[in-house]
Design a protein around this nucleic acid. Structure first.
Length: 483
DNA sequence: TCCGATGACTCAGAAAACTATTT
DNA sequence: AAAATAGTTTTCTGAGTCATCGG
């Protein structure tokens, strides 16, 4: 890899005046070369990769062979942050063995560094779960080699997370009445805490730690909201006391919402916002650590992010209850599941870019629907003819033809319903990302129990890797599980 | 008590890789 | 029957959360 010389650095002022076609062509050609490779060659390369994974992709922990999540260090390249990142385009250096710290037990077979190289350090720290680590040069942060989500250590942690959220379920009403009381506190700090907690609970906002200015993209969460992100409307869209929230959250995903709130919340916000400039903090007397300290006092293990887990899982359970009908087909039940999943994703503001082929595939689906409607019209015509035939002849043969036509029409109508539901599902899902909530917020036991109760094969809901990740839940849960 | 820095872990969507379907 | 296309799954690595530590 080549770096710019000092001379080039002073010469180049605008990247958009640079010609990148050469490197672009390089990658296009590389992709084309791979496509053009004969089948056997591809197979050979794949087998080599598999061999590598077999050798380096696993470790032994407490006597068990476990899969590693990321067994390769990150490749050198240009740093590509999300959103308007001040460090975008910086050179990410290649990781050498001399950068890497190895963590394994003393009596284990310590991995050999490549010939002619040495590890930065070999240590034996059994209080952490990582196997190796290095410091990445762009953000100066530590990167880790850790176990796969299917491992025992990750699975247990995942289970614990949902158990904490279930404990919150038992005390959440009490906590809610507590933060409502705080809205009236003479201490402004408590009022801010109460309102922030209301947002975190009701809108599933992230905590919002403060970040050092200028080092990362300018994004916020609840506690770091600024004046410029909030607008108050006494009346809007037929509601009283509406709060307009508009800010960039994690990964610079926009959060945009008009929320009717309780009068006390609205009035408190008016007080918090008095005499402040757009760049000032809304909750100026609140920090994430004081908020979490308070939550810890209310319940052992409670932190702000637990509300997201709790509310996500509760919404899934409730939506599945509302949307599932036992007499529906498997396909209809899966659509109900997706809808419930979507309700959670919307709550958590999990968005995706509209897929590149969205419009086209939507059109294709509409074409299929039209074709089905035409078929139905034809079948109706034939049915009427058969009816007339039967009325005139009244014999067994014409009766059986009539019945056949009736069955055909019914089948076609069912297919149409299925297609239309699918289209609606696709349409509603255009900009919603379901994956994150499914993987990180929804207690898998809710989904598995639902599958068992309604006879939906688990494979229809969870892919192979997802089933491996949720093995702990598959092993323990029956159809009567309640979150 | 209160910071600011750091470390270790979870969670995030895009892109790549793979698989199924259509042409 | 093979190639193109569409749909699904997995990988990748950046971006958060939160506890702890030292002053």
């Amino acid at each position: 890899m080549m770096e710019m010389t000092a001379e080039e650095r002073s010469l180049i002022k605008h990247l958009d005046k640079c010609d990148f076609t050469e490197i672009h062509r390089h990658f296009v050609d590389k992709a084309a070369a791979w496509r053009a490779l004969p089948r056997e060659e591809k197979q050979k390369l794949k087998e080599e990769a598999e061999k590598l994974e077999h050798e380096f992709g696993y470790c032994t922990l407490d006597g068990h062979r476990e899969k590693i999540g990321n067994f390769k260090t990150e490749l050198p390249g240009l740093f590509c942050g999300r959103g308007d990142h001040p460090k975008m385009g910086m050179l990410k250096r290649r990781i050498r063995p001399e950068d890497v710290v190895i963590n394994c037990s003393r009596d284990s077979q310590i991995p050999e560094p490549p010939a002619g190289h040495q590890w930065k350090e070999v240590r034996s720290d059994n209080t952490v779960t990582w196997l190796a680590a290095w410091t990445e040069n762009v953000q100066n942060s530590i990167k880790y080699i850790m176990l796969n989500p299917s491992s025992k250590i990750k699975g247990e942690k995942d289970w614990q997370k949902y158990e904490v959220a279930r404990r919150l379920k038992r005390v959440v009403e009490e906590i809610r009445s507590q933060y409502r009381t705080d809205w009236k506190s003479p201490e402004m700090k408590k009022r801010q805490r109460g309102v922030a907690l209301y947002f975190i609970d009701k809108l599933a906002l992230r905590t919002g730690n403060e970040k050092e200015e200028g080092r990362t993209a300018d994004t916020v969460g609840c506690c770091s909201l600024r004046m410029e992100h909030v607008r108050l409307h006494m009346y809007a869209n037929g509601h009283k006391h509406v709060v307009e929230l508009d800010f960039l959250g994690k990964d610079s995903i926009r959060y945009y919402n008009w929320v009717p709130v309780e009068k006390a919340v609205f009035q408190n916000l008016q007080i918090f916002m008095e005499n402040k400039d757009p760049g000032e903090d809304l909750f100026d007397k609140l920090t994430t650590s004081s908020l979490n300290k308070h939550l810890q006092d209310l319940m052992d293990g409670l932190t702000a992010k637990v509300f997201r887990t709790y509310n996500a899982s509760i919404v899934l359970q409730e939506q599945l209850r509302v949307l599932t009908r036992a007499e529906d087909s498997i396909a209809a039940k899966i659509l109900a599941y997706n809808r419930a999943n979507r309700a959670v994703a919307i709550l958590c503001n999990h968005q995706r870019a509209t897929p590149k082929t969205f419009e086209k595939s939507m059109r294709n689906l509409q074409t299929k629907i039209q074709a089905k409607k035409t078929q139905i019209a034809e079948a109706q015509g034939e049915l009427r003819k058969a009816e007339g035939d039967y009325r005139i002849k009244g014999d067994g043969k014409s009766k059986s033809i009539l019945e056949k036509k009736q069955r055909l029409l019914q089948k076609l109508e069912e297919q149409l319903v299925h297609l239309s539901t699918k289209a609606t599902d696709k349409e509603e899902n255009q900009q919603v990302a379901l994956g994150t909530s499914k993987l990180s917020y929804l207690d898998p036991r809710i989904s598995i129990a639902w599958c068992k109760r309604f006879g939906v094969p688990v494979e229809k809901i969870y892919s192979k890797t997802q089933r491996a990740k949720f093995a702990w839940a598959l092993a323990m849960v029956g159809e009567d599980f309640e979150f």
